[in-house]
Amino acid sequence: MSFRPLPILFINLGGEMLYILDQRLRAQNIPGDKSKKVMNDIISTMFNQRFMENLFRPQEIYSKKGMRTVFDRLAHASIMRLNTASMDKLYDLMTMALKYQISLCLRPSDILLVTLNHLDAIRAFVEDSVPIRNQVEAVFRMVIKTYGSLSMGEFQLIRQTLLEFFQDIHIRVSIFLKDKVQNSNGRFVLPVAGAVPYGAEIPGSIRYYDDCGKMIKTTEFPCGSKYQASLREGSFETKGDRVIKLGTNMYSAVRPTDTTVSNPAQKSTMASSAEEATANPNPMVKAELNLLAHLMGAVDNKKGKSDFRVNMFNTDEEEEQFGASRPPPDMYDFKVINIDASKIQKSDELNRIMGDLSIPESSGSSSKGDDLLELMDSAS
């Protein structure tokens, strides 16, 4: 486990959230001044200097429930309001988009490029606001200072920690389904061919060297797939002359952003994974949430008639179907049954076996008993 992935996770999830909110604000024809205020308030709170300094301290990654709570509060750091179903859908889209991007990183260090692309897009949202833009640029420098000199092994550990965070989350997203990069069970279709990591050689050659290090011959072998060199660092797909970069806004084109669930069992798996790791929560999470709540205090005091609601669904029927597909909150409250093995009557056969396993007392030593359970207890 790495103690460095939390800022990367937070910044990239925040970038995806801003992409989605920008698309929904435009789709619902929200006036430009209100849309700008929503984006400015959220970005200003997200990149608050004190909050970022606490976030960049080496620490364990938050639990899924803790991270969801952070973004729930962050999304409401303005005059915009989301109901529970819309917030659930927003977070589903955020997590699946980032999971897909991390899965497509050809090199572990490409995670840094994904983060920088998100920061560039976020800075473009607040180009007209100099103070907020300076906040984003300060975080940009923090990212470079923290991650710019890490080795490939450290980036691999960060990538592994992030993938563990997204493990067992398989939510179907219509954009991914239409692009055929996601199966009907919610799992991504990852390419086994195509571009190799930037600067890497295309596989299929074996070189032989002599004792002096001079290459004496080269042989070729079939590698089973077609590979090509990456045109640019941080790109993962090429369509004609257009290079698609990880971390860019996939909602720039107006497309539906539905999330669907294949079956209740699958949703049960996703919801249970969302509750995973909450038994031993990170003590820093509470402090971060309290800090975030304090930073949003000025915004909360200004709530009034200017508040408006943003809906992540196109119709009320779609929202009702989404809400009905989610399991009830108490579905995962399991009962614990305690069994006291000491009160179970032992059979004659079991007593005979235990008698055969008894250890005779040695001279000068106290008896440890003939019961196998006592022997195991003493060993432990």
Rank of each mutant, 00 (worst) to 15 (best):
R107F: 01
Q101L: 01
D88E: 12
I158Y: 08
L190K: 11
I111P: 02
L190S: 08
Y198A: 15
Y91P: 00
M87I: 02
R172G: 14
L98Q: 11
I175K: 13
P108E: 09
T146C: 06
H76T: 13
T84W: 05
S109L: 01
G186H: 01
E154K: 09
H170M: 08
E201P: 03
R207S: 15
D110T: 02
A138W: 06
D92A: 13
T146N: 11
A85S: 07
D128K: 03
H118K: 07
Y100K: 09
T161A: 15
P191L: 04
V192S: 13
L177E: 14
R133I: 04
L116V: 10
L74S: 12
L119P: 00
E201C: 15
N117F: 04
N83C: 00
H118N: 08
S103E: 10
D168G: 11
R159N: 06
L104W: 08
M142T: 12
R68S: 11
R81C: 06
S149C: 06
I132T: 11
R207K: 15
E164H: 13
R187L: 15
V189M: 14
A138Y: 03
V143N: 09
F176Y: 05
A121N: 09
V136Q: 01
M96G: 11
A77Y: 09
E154R: 04
P131R: 02
R123C: 10
M96D: 08
V126R: 01
S184L: 15
L82K: 09
Y198D: 06
I202D: 12
V181E: 12
A195H: 10
Y91Q: 05
S205K: 14
L74C: 05
K89N: 07
R141P: 06
N134G: 05
V181C: 09
V126E: 08
A193V: 09
N185T: 14
S78I: 04
F71D: 04
Y198N: 11
L93A: 06
T84K: 09
R133D: 13
I171Q: 03
V136S: 06
Q156P: 02
P203I: 07
Y147V: 04
V196A: 03
E201G: 10
I202T: 07
F166A: 08
I111M: 15
H118G: 09
F176L: 08
L106M: 07
D128F: 03
S129K: 07
L162A: 05
R141I: 04
L74Q: 11
R123S: 14
L116G: 07
I132E: 01
V196C: 12
R159C: 06
M152E: 15
N117V: 05
M80N: 09
G194K: 07
H118M: 02
Y91W: 02
R73F: 14
A195R: 10
M152H: 13
K89H: 11
L119T: 00
Q182E: 01
